[in-house]
Design a binder for these strands. Sequence first.
DNA 1: TCTTGATCTCAAGTTAACTTGAGGTTGCAG
DNA 2: CTGCAACCTCAAGTTAACTTGAGATCAAGA
Lengths: 150, 150
Amino acid sequence: MIKTTDLMTIGEVADRTGVSVSALRYYEEEGLIAALRSSGGQRRFVRGELRRISFVMISQQLGFSLAQIKMALDSFPKGRTPTKADWAKLSRTFKGDLDKRIEALVQLRKRLDGCIGCGCLSLKHCALYNAEDKANKRGVGPRYIIGDQP
Amino acid sequence: MIKTTDLMTIGEVADRTGVSVSALRYYEEEGLIAALRSSGGQRRFVRGELRRISFVMISQQLGFSLAQIKMALDSFPKGRTPTKADWAKLSRTFKGDLDKRIEALVQLRKRLDGCIGCGCLSLKHCALYNAEDKANKRGVGPRYIIGDQP
DNA sequence: TCTTGATCTCAAGTTAACTTGAGGTTGCAG
DNA sequence: CTGCAACCTCAAGTTAACTTGAGATCAAGA
């Protein structure tokens, strides 16, 4: 007989979502998802968490960091179960970001097209390099141009 | 009086390229660039290294990892100074990768368009999630899909 | 009740691409 | 010959997103 409890163990959630147990614990620690506890202290997840986890996974595929995803989830109306409309709204804001990233990549490709064959790669003259030069001067540390964060 | 030596110190290279001194040392350690040494053990760079460094910077902007860039540079004909054609060839192979990345993002956006409004986010049914499921199974550790920021 | 697999916590390790710091040397202008 | 900025090496720190391991506890079937 199949269990009809609506509480799932972390292992069950891991199986259903494909997210590892350790990652789920990490997500909880980071406040992305929530879990109840059994009398013995083990995590018990309600069905609704599956949707949050799905959202996290999908958002990651779209290239968002957990920090961004958390902010998105935190923007949810507090106190009531999120509706389909809530989720759809979140998706829509993500689309804007995606649009921007695609546009940036297409621009970059255009410049690369211009550069192929010239082989110059001069810091002074290369259009590819220089076009992005200013955007690049954003503080110290690793510089990610293509999908960087607001 | 302007120095006409063709050897540059690490500080000069840093000034000319915008790459930090510590990053240049790191690049040398990783085998991306090479440096001669002064009698006292300080690095001395030949002009040709500027082009390699440019290539590294541009490639990073295109979203490639240093490991990938190193492989590209290692594919250079050994024993002779790289020609413009060599550099152009490298650029061309990078364009292929860029094309693929753009295509993947556009597909993703298409699916997101389909998903907006449905709000389903079901792991079983969401086309957005499932379509990329396999592509996502790329080993362990942090998964950077787009080239995004930490 | 026993046993075994699933969980728990907490600390430390992993990867990429660097940066920062400590403690010591080099090289060039004056 | 001095002084001091620039350089050197080596070790450790940084961030994201987790994983791995140790040592201990829980839950459930036989």
